[in-house]
């Protein structure tokens, strides 16, 4: 990987700064270019939706931005810090302090209650909010002492969101957050995400193949074959409650 120095002209609000970001898997004839030279800048408070079909490279982008993987080449900075060249411990530190994840399949710890699932994070984070506060934010103040098996899918996903934001992360990464949910519950989940972005000013990235969510975003990126093939800015954001699919 080329030596990277943080560009001096970065604005203070810049969260991600990526240039020629490339990720390949395998080698020789079997080489797969999952991400083929992506340039991207994201600022604090932005709401970004990344659209793309399966295999377009959107999950790879999320893995790199989320510190779950490192790029093959190109540069990636998080607030001027060279995320692209971070080691294992650095990535763990980054995920612990800066990123909140929300996955399609909730991934709650079944042996912990809603409150404890959130507390898991607040125990290790530097400046967390109270677990109760996080759960209130997602509208689950009344079901805090239930175990995951006692919650519906939508409720579980909202616990996952509470868990992701309780540490006051700089970035909220959501990978198909409504993929496993019906429309009504999906909408409640998106509302929660929207509120976090608005109230806490968290840079929010949603990765989805569902183009309906594009209306919620400040900016919509379209990925195909590892390239950014489209970028659109919405003049006004549509409220989650008005979405329909």
């Amino acid at each position: 990987m080329a030596t990277a120095t943080p560009p001096s002209e970065l604005s203070p609000s810049s969260v991600f700064h990526a240039r020629a970001l490339t990720k390949t898997y395998g080698d020789g004839d079997a080489v797969v270019r999952a991400l083929a030279g992506v340039d991207l800048d994201c600022s604090a408070g932005e709401f970004v939706v990344v659209l793309g079909a399966s295999g377009s490279g959107k999950s790879t982008l999320l893995n790199l931005l989320g510190g779950l993987d490192t790029p093959t080449s190109g540069t990636l900075f998080y607030r001027g810090w060279d995320l692209g060249r971070a080691d294992e411990a650095g990535l763990t530190r980054y995920r612990r302090d800066a990123v909140g994840f929300v996955f399609q399949f909730y991934n709650l710890i079944p042996s912990l209650t809603a409150r404890e699932n959130v507390a898991l994070i607040t125990e290790i984070a530097a400046d967390p909010m109270a677990p109760e506060e996080a759960l209130q934010l997602v509208g689950l103040g009344a079901r805090m002492d239930h175990f995951p098996a006692q919650l519906s899918g939508g409720e579980q996903q909202r616990v996952a969101i509470a868990r992701a934001i309780a540490k006051r992360p700089a970035v909220l990464m959501c990978d198909e957050p409504t993929g496993a949910l019906d429309v009504r519950t999906g909408m409640a989940v998106l509302e929660a995400i929207e509120r976090i972005n608005r109230d806490l000013g968290t840079l929010t990235l949603i990765i989805t193949h569902n183009s309906v969510m594009a209306g919620m975003a400040d900016r919509v990126l379209t990925l195909s074959d590892g390239h950014i093939t489209g970028e659109k800015r919405n003049a006004t954001r549509v409220a989650a409650t008005s979405l329909a699919w």
Binding site: G66, L68, E88, A89, T92, R93, Y94, R95, R96, D97, V99, G100, F101, N107, L108, I109, P110, L120, I121, I124, A125, R163, A164, K167
Partner: peptide
């Protein structure tokens, strides 16, 4: 469960 913990920032 363990992968989740790693992802949300628990060390190895």
């Amino acid at each position: 469960e363990l992968a989740t913990l790693r992802v949300i920032g628990f060390t190895r």
